[in-house]
Write a protein that binds this DNA or RNA. Structure first.
Lengths: 326, 326
DNA sequence: TTGTACGCGTTATCAT
DNA sequence: ATGATAACGCGTACAA
């Protein structure tokens, strides 16, 4: 079934049917006639023919490192709810933390196939930027601030500085840090930098032995915590780059019979669903992940519809959630 | 840039370029020439023109109730990893638990736009089935067994029966159950039915006061647990339909100073990332969510490529993960 | 091995 | 208010 056949069944030209479908001027008579035939036949216009003609797909390409992560899936949730309102759908590029696949998806989305791209990446290499430069559709970056691109990100650097000051308030002075590898710019690099500068600003000693980096898992938190305590140094608190890491660390502390928060204070970032369920409940930072997805959706649609070429930067705030671990 | 211009730049016909792109016979000379021009220009064939011509989009429509859920995102992860291997991508339909949107997405995906549909729904209404009947592309259902459709699902009914027998082994006799509303066929209906039949098979008394249904949140688990204990009945164990619910229940038990597993045994289903982090670590059922996504991907691609019309049913097994809560 | 000519289903242009 | 016709960019019979 196609527009020509519908036109024949109605005894009108396909131009009229097309006008009917796209809200052009059609006589009442014909409107009714066409609607009836469409209902009877269950006709749906071919999206690819339409795309070929209009150069629009109503698709947003969303590139993410790992869809099965609470953080990422909340961002995607936000993007999806926002762009759906405007009739857009999501073409999902799940890269499984594989940088090659990120590049691959950028290439797939290049030129056509999608009307805009939202990318949530941990690391932007030269290769990324080179390809992105040659992409004609608008691009929005979520999670970090990349020069010359519209970005939605959190203030990772200052958040950790803030956490250090919270510990200082409680008179904690021997603070360890468990983060992630630094090629992750936001979670790895920025947060660790915030930690070190936070110590300096609060006149605390920077002991690089107490700064560890692993991956995003709770297992990593557990291991790194063990490493820290094997040094036999005095430690009264730990800042963890993510809730997951904090949970692993707490598990290790339980094993060596240290009480949180009496013996050791723990602070982390994420406010994950489980941070308020576990015991002790985590004192953590709430980040607006879903909001960041919504904002990214807003911006990309503005760029698409209004050919808005401005580079927009949105630094989202944060909320300190005090619970039991401090 | 299009195929005609590339052809001009190479001094060949566009047919030759098309053949080059689709692995047809082209002389070595021309192959090199064309490759060079493509590299220089960064040409990427127009996907919509190709789709219009071939009637293939290489897109799989994936409809899910909520992408920001550990269970769902693991399924999507599996689908994505599998279909990517065959050059397919995912068009994501996130319905935010809104049945109307499920119907909407089915309509969007109808006829064209995608080559196949994978749907993860909690409830299949008549309206769903009516639309699905009229969809020409293959459909695979994940999470429950729907007549006449290929399905990947878990054995929810027998899993809960199994859990009841585990409690019986430990001589627990007063078992409560916290589940979810029964219009969710798999998690709501099947699991609760398994619970009741499990009691009967083990010669245990069925007390409907001790069977509660809420939503999927830990808050619901907390509330329902409180309701159960407000009855002042003897209770020595609780089976929870999900890990989340179990975590909420455990939090309530802590508040009334009941020890898990000494006073109360807890069993649940899901083996979520956090079930092994919290204290006490949950004894739970491992479900193969990612695998179910992979299988769904396998089947849909088989259906697409081989026009395989058989209805395939896969009931996945489960694994009992004994930890500390029993 | 290569090229010509046509058609996929739609929308845009221009006349009427 | 309506219709004839071209064009979007590609793949593919068919002929050479």
């Amino acid at each position: 079934m196609n527009i020509t056949k519908i036109a024949q069944l109605c005894g009108v030209s396909k131009t009229t049917v097309s006008r009917f479908l796209n809200n052009g001027y059609v006589s009442k008579e014909n409107k009714e006639k066409i609607q009836k035939v469409i209902d009877e036949t269950g006709y749906v216009p071919s999206s690819y023919a339409k795309q070929l003609r209009t150069k629009k797909t109503n698709l947003i390409g969303v590139i993410v490192p790992k869809i099965s992560s609470e953080t990422i899936s909340r961002i995607v949730d936000g993007i999806s709810s926002q762009v759906n309102k405007f009739g857009y759908n999501i073409l999902l590029g799940n890269t499984d933390l594989n940088i090659e696949k990120e590049i691959e998806y950028l290439n797939i989305f290049k030129n056509n196939q999608v009307d805009g791209i939202i990318i949530v990446a941990t690391e932007f290499t030269k290769k990324h930027l080179e390809i992105m430069k040659n992409i004609k559709v608008p691009i929005v970056v979520v999670g970090q601030n990349i020069e010359n691109y519209s970005c939605i990100y959190h203030d990772d650097y200052n958040v950790v500085k803030f956490l250090v000051s919270k510990l200082k308030e409680k008179n904690r002075k021997n603070i360890a840090y468990i983060g992630v590898y630094k090629n992750d710019k936001a979670v790895g690099y920025e947060r660790e930098k915030g930690f070190i500068d936070g110590l300096l600003e609060n006149d605390l000693n920077v002991d690089y032995d107490l700064i560890k980096a692993g991956d995003f898992s709770s297992e990593s938190g557990y291991k790194k915590c063990r490493e820290i305590f094997s040094l036999n140094k005095e430690i009264d608190s730990i800042i963890c780059a993510t809730d997951n890491i904090a949970m692993g660390a707490i598990n290790f502390l339980k094993e060596i019979n240290l009480k949180v928060p009496k013996d050791i204070s723990i602070l982390s970032i994420g406010d994950s669903k489980y941070s308020k369920i576990i015991s002790p409940k985590l004192s953590t930072i709430h980040y607006y992940y879903k909001t960041s997805g919504i904002k990214a959706g807003e911006i990309i649609i503005d760029k698409i519809n209004n050919k808005n070429d401005k580079t927009i930067k949105i630094k989202l705030g944060f909320e300190y959630i005090k619970r039991e671990s401090i």
